[in-house]
Write a protein that binds this DNA or RNA. Sequence first.
DNA 1: TCACTGTGAGACAGATTGACTCACAAATCA
DNA 2: TGATTTGTGAGTCAATCTGTCTCACAGTGA
Lengths: 197, 197
Amino acid sequence: MPEERADPRQVRSREAMVAAATTLLTEGGLEAVSHQAVAARAGVGRATVYRHWPDLLGLRLAALEAGMPPLSPAPEDVRAASGADPRAELVHYLRQLGERLDDAQAGAVLAAVLGGAQRDDGMQHLRRTLLTQIVDSLRPAVTAAVARGRLRDDVTAEAFAMTTVGPLVYQRFLVGARLGHDTVDAVVDSALRAWAP
Amino acid sequence: MPEERADPRQVRSREAMVAAATTLLTEGGLEAVSHQAVAARAGVGRATVYRHWPDLLGLRLAALEAGMPPLSPAPEDVRAASGADPRAELVHYLRQLGERLDDAQAGAVLAAVLGGAQRDDGMQHLRRTLLTQIVDSLRPAVTAAVARGRLRDDVTAEAFAMTTVGPLVYQRFLVGARLGHDTVDAVVDSALRAWAP
DNA sequence: TCACTGTGAGACAGATTGACTCACAAATCA
DNA sequence: TGATTTGTGAGTCAATCTGTCTCACAGTGA
């Protein structure tokens, strides 16, 4: 990767614009993110926003990406204990995901992706990235659970994600409920029963 | 309900507008549904669209509602056999729901609801309607399955919907996969295992 | 036949969009 | 330090979209 020297002014205004864009996204959904609104909110000239993101989609994708940082890995002790108790690591990731879905900003991102990813190429890519992120977070724990005999040995991380993340998304975006730890734990246990050897 | 006499001209243009609106929704998502676009597509004056739906939300809700008719009940023989084999009725409804989600028009409706139901009151209501529709379709079959001893007796239609509809929505809108009968059947079986007595 | 009413076409102001200038100040480099 | 480069903010402009209004007309029901 070639060393890109960035003008501090560029960096400064870009950061202000991205922050403004994610705020707008959280407050009013994807439609609220426009060059004009971002410029006003970031205290920046309208032309500057156009200079950084000539097309609206790019601007919105920047807001979406900034609003959904990757999940953090489980703490060392949980991962270490994973051989003895694979459930704990699964619960860790899915509770974290649950909190994310409950969070207004990340919730708005996922809602936008769910709603808009069929027609748009950039959105498609973001959807794929998000999905990979989630499934890969779960993969080690699923593998450990299979090795430990808690899950059937033909269970993939993809299948397990479907039976856990699916219900969480349903509960959050269709039922409109908040995702407490009890809900998440129940979903994990239900999935463990469904895929028990 | 008082007998409303409707001017045939009203009925005609209303039908044309609703049809145009759902087409636009399918083709370009909720954002593509505007008074102007509907007027042009329906071959109708712009003022006419405003006359029927003074605000944009109402117009879009009309498009959404028209694009998502209720699920049809299981055929008589499936329902009759439900005592002996509750799984068949569950499969019937969820296959139907799967086909709906695969369908571009209904898929666009659900995607819009998933993506936009947090901020908007009208959307909230539509989301609730949709949810009730889905859960109530499943309820008799779930009750039958509980009675027949195929499901734990504390399983509600709501909980069962979460573990079946959730994965289908996930598979369709996050993974981006089409929902074949095999996928749906696998989801049903997985849910039956998860909630087995 | 005749009054009524929903309609299509168009005019209109206001807002938004995207492209374009231009002076200025911050950043870079000698 | 001082000269030059370059990103920026403010503004202009045409094109488009939105929401409201008027008006002639034709389909409707009596």
